[in-house]
Write a protein that binds this DNA or RNA. Structure first.
Lengths: 227, 227, 227, 227
DNA sequence: GATGAATGAGTTTTCATTCAT
DNA sequence: TATGAATGAAAACTCATTCAT
């Protein structure tokens, strides 16, 4: 996103190349790791630096404070997600198939971005809650998911396969349900495995869990769910 | 947990005598608050004590270390839940009604015990995850919910109102789905409100959200869900 | 020394028998252990109590303070040594044989009373040094060893087997040499073994070390030492 | 150990610049003093720092923990001894003269390095004993003394002045005997003075004690000791 | 831009000792 | 005489941040 690797341009002859950006990016990477593992309060600036080739002073040079570094890590995390999404081309699929694909994609995505999930969990545990999320772009980004769902629902209702009427779930409802189960799967994995012996992310029960979540969502919207 | 052991006298209103149990319980209460607000890493022993009439030394007198206090707080939190549960008498209700009541009770409970939810979230964010939950009693306690669900499912299937067969959800499946949505509602409330403008816990959308969750669970198990 | 075990007298019918003395003695025993392992500064009152059936308050009841308890432990330790000594009947042996016996007895004694040796070492490491040894009885007790040596030396000189004259060692000289080697053997055992691989107290080199020390002392006083 | 690494400039009298080595060395010096006076358990990090121009934080910056600082002090102490030794040129002296010089040098050395003796005493009083001495360099260093003694003994035996045969003392034997008396003189000085009125280190009996120790060692090895 | 040394305020933990019964 | 609870002072250790080069 920021580093300019490889095909790089212009001033390659200046001995200290764009090390600035590289250093900044390296710190950010390390911060995402550190904070996603221990949160804002538990994460240590020293630990961030140790994951890096630079020294502590640079953190303050580039980010000013631990808190601002945390915020930068959070935003960067959201940004990376946006890149991954989008390319599902759900509009070419039947509504119910499209919904299945979306659910599976969401699950896969959070599975591959546990760091992101953890960051959001930490964010929610902070006093005021969600304080560091400022920025309309983040809000806008997340809204796009709702738009996709809205289109999906409209097509499904038009086709008569999705429920309609005042009782039927809205796009935001669907997003809430999907997010709930996707988050819980990754975020509460440890506790759930410890207490009930089920690993929702890896191992033999993984497929069953994915099926379960997909089914739950589909039965919520389908007019005529399969037995 | 409370005082008045056996031979204890009547005058409970006497000036606060030296009372080990009372002191211990007060520290534990304060710890649940503090840790649920800031987590193990963020919580401070000083802050725990400030919520109390005792001094810091007593924390170490009774609990040994900050970590052991945290663990005690976690276990006590689980214990309190058990007390609330159980008294629902679900066996006297029709299966589908019973399931509705159970869902609503779970939602209400977590709503009233945000501290508990937050503690579990913090627990899941810790390195190894769920490390502090050791103790079979906690595991056993949580298992009771699954047993209740199993009975419920059996009755519903016998009555022909709940789905049956290899595709049908198990008791643990149901528990996972219910927990997912109950946890997300309380645990991710801040982020969700910030990003989508919906407050899942209080305010005008509260009822809609409760309906949504109940419907999601019911449609998952009902053979013939209402339109 | 203090406890009154068994053949005990008088008021045996009073239900709480001489528990006072028993408690005091138990604390003293525990204190000797604790302080000989960790010294005055390193020893903890809690640890003393844990080696006992009583509680911490009793330490203060009987001894007033940690320091006074330490002092009591030190004195008691010296007292116990006195009991062991004395019964060697060296006067019935030839002077050189008597000296050999005395050396061996000293070595054996310190080997069996590592706690005592350690207490003395700790005492010497304390700031002022030997501050807690006050009491003429202790001084007198130790002087008895010198008297024994003086008698021994006189007999040996009279018999012409021990060196005489201004160059010859005095009784105190002998005591110093014997004590040096006896103390070092027990007190510096760990370091010496670590650095030179020789265990001076146990194992295959033990006999050699005992021989060495005996020889060193004997050659110092004998007029005509064996080749 | 000292500063002025390589490119360093000339002005050594400039105001105390930021100098890592200097700070580290100052802390180490202070630690040797503090720990030799009070031991690992009794020594306080605050007290170490007070002997210094730096602050407590630096102890942890450079040494990590109190225990590691103690260990560094112990090793540094051993290192300093090595520097003092070696330059005796014993090989140019007659064997018996050389042994006398070595004994006197050892005594003088420990007299001038009471801190070292005390550190070793403390080390021996610690639970496991000599635990902090790890490091082959320390072991190797100490072994050099034995090598010197071995050379000395060989020369003396060849010259017919030192005892030979299975009964004769080994180099390690000699080292043990010398160390015993040198250690006792400094380490048990306080107790010995208190109990027997003899100050082995200073005062009128000093010379007598040095003579005594020298004689004891010499008579152990000489074939034909003087009357 | 980059770097290692330095720092002060805070945080957990320990420990001898006293209180109330 | 015995006991468990309580406590304040001090100790070890941590951490975000800044200084000097």
């Amino acid at each position: 996103m920021t580093t300019d690797q490889g095909d790089g341009p212009a001033d390659d002859d200046a001995p200290p190349r764009r090390d600035a950006e590289r250093t900044r990016a390296a710190i950010l990477d390390a911060a995402i790791e550190e904070f996603s593992e221990r949160g804002l309060l538990g994460g240590r600036v020293d630990a961030v630096v140790e994951r890096t080739a630079t020294v502590k002073r640079m953190v303050y040079y580039y980010f000013g404070s631990k808190e601002r570094l945390y915020q930068a890590a959070l935003i960067e995390s959201y940004r990376r997600i946006r890149q991954t999404e989008g390319a599902l081309h759900l509009e070419t699929l039947d509504p119910d198939q499209a919904l299945r694909v979306l659910v599976r994609a969401t699950l896969a995505h959070q599975e591959n971005n546990a760091a992101f999930v953890r960051l959001v969990m930490f964010e929610n545990t902070l006093a005021g809650g969600a304080i560091h999320l400022m920025g309309d772009d983040v809000r806008e980004l997340n809204h796009s998911v709702v738009l996709i769902l809205e289109d999906l629902l409209a097509r499904g209702r038009a086709a008569g396969v999705f429920r309609d009427g005042p009782e039927a779930p809205t796009a935001l409802d669907l997003h809430q349900v999907i997010s709930s189960m996707a988050f819980f799967r990754v975020g509460n994995r440890a506790t759930f495995r410890e207490l009930f012996g089920r690993d929702m992310v890896e191992g033999p029960e993984r497929d069953h869990v994915l099926e379960l979540i997909e089914t739950t969502v589909l039965r919520l919207v389908l007019v005529d769910p399969p037995a």
